[in-house]
Computed example of a mutant assay.
Amino acid sequence: MQSCVEDVDVLSFAFTTTTGSESGTRAASAKPHAPSTNPCRDAIRGLQSSTANALQLGDLRFLRRLGSGDIGSVYLAEIKCAEGCVLAAKVMDKQELSSRNKESRARVEREILDLLDHPFLPTLYATLDSPRWSCLLTEFCPGGDLHLLRQRQPEKRFDEAAVR
């Protein structure tokens, strides 16, 4: 997948905040593991209200690429108007998803993050969509890939005390 960082400043996305379901019937407070006040979520909501629901990818500063996977690349990003507010931005090329029959996988990932509330899953702040790109804006979880960390453990698994 090609990196999109060079094109970031010229892209505009449709913006949606997440509320826990497609219909928006569940309030954000219905997720007890997500703090009620969060600087990144608050900054995104502030941009939403000040720009008539039009968050643009240009509102983000991409700091570095964190990694890539089967359906996209993840970048460490900062909201420009909220210094120090970092998040993870998973960017997926819609044309590549379509050509590789991976659209449903991307949709399911988005739905799972939107629906579930668990301390082991990153909080989904918002999604951005354009004709070419789809982007998930999530909580940044420092420390790297959990799968790789597990692979480095004795017997390739965490002991019971570590997971409590």
Rank of each mutant, 00 (worst) to 15 (best):
P122L: 00
P142R: 06
D129F: 04
R110N: 09
S134F: 14
F120E: 00
L116F: 09
L116E: 03
L136E: 09
L137N: 06
P142Q: 06
N101T: 07
V108R: 13
S104L: 13
V108I: 14
A126V: 01
L115S: 07
L116D: 04
T127F: 00
F140R: 10
L124E: 05
D114P: 01
T127V: 09
V108N: 12
P122V: 01
L97H: 05
P119G: 00
K102Q: 15
A126L: 02
K94I: 11
R132N: 06
E109D: 14
R107H: 09
N101L: 07
W133R: 09
T127N: 00
G143E: 11
R107S: 07
L137D: 07
S98Q: 15
R107Q: 12
E103A: 09
V108K: 13
P142T: 08
E139A: 08
E111F: 06
R110L: 08
S134A: 11
F140M: 09
G143D: 11
L124N: 03
P131E: 08
L97E: 04
E109W: 04
N101K: 11
E109Q: 13
W133G: 01
H118T: 00
M92N: 12
F120K: 04
D114K: 13
L128H: 02
L136Y: 09
A126Y: 02
T127D: 03
S134W: 05
R110H: 10
C135K: 04
R132Y: 04
D114R: 14
M92L: 12
S134M: 09
C135R: 04
T123M: 01
H118I: 00
D93T: 07
D145K: 06
P131Q: 07
L137W: 12
A106I: 02
D145N: 15
S104N: 10
P142A: 14
D129A: 11
Q95R: 15
P142W: 09
R100Q: 15
E96M: 12
L121F: 11
D145Q: 11
P122F: 00
R132L: 07
R110E: 13
I112N: 06
Q95L: 14
E139K: 14
K102F: 10
S130K: 05
C135L: 14
V108Y: 05
P142G: 12
F140Q: 08
E96H: 13
V91C: 15
A106P: 06
F140L: 12
L116G: 00
R105F: 09
S130N: 08
R107F: 10
K102N: 13
S104C: 08
E96C: 10
D117A: 03
S98R: 15
T127Q: 00
C135V: 15
D145L: 11
L124G: 02
L128T: 04
E109K: 06
P131I: 02
R110C: 06
D145R: 06
S99K: 15
D93E: 10
L128D: 03
P131V: 04
G144E: 12
L115C: 08
S99M: 12
F140E: 02
W133A: 05
L136D: 08
D93K: 10
G143F: 13
L121H: 06
L116A: 08
P131H: 07
L124I: 02
V91A: 13
K102A: 13
E96N: 10
A106Y: 01
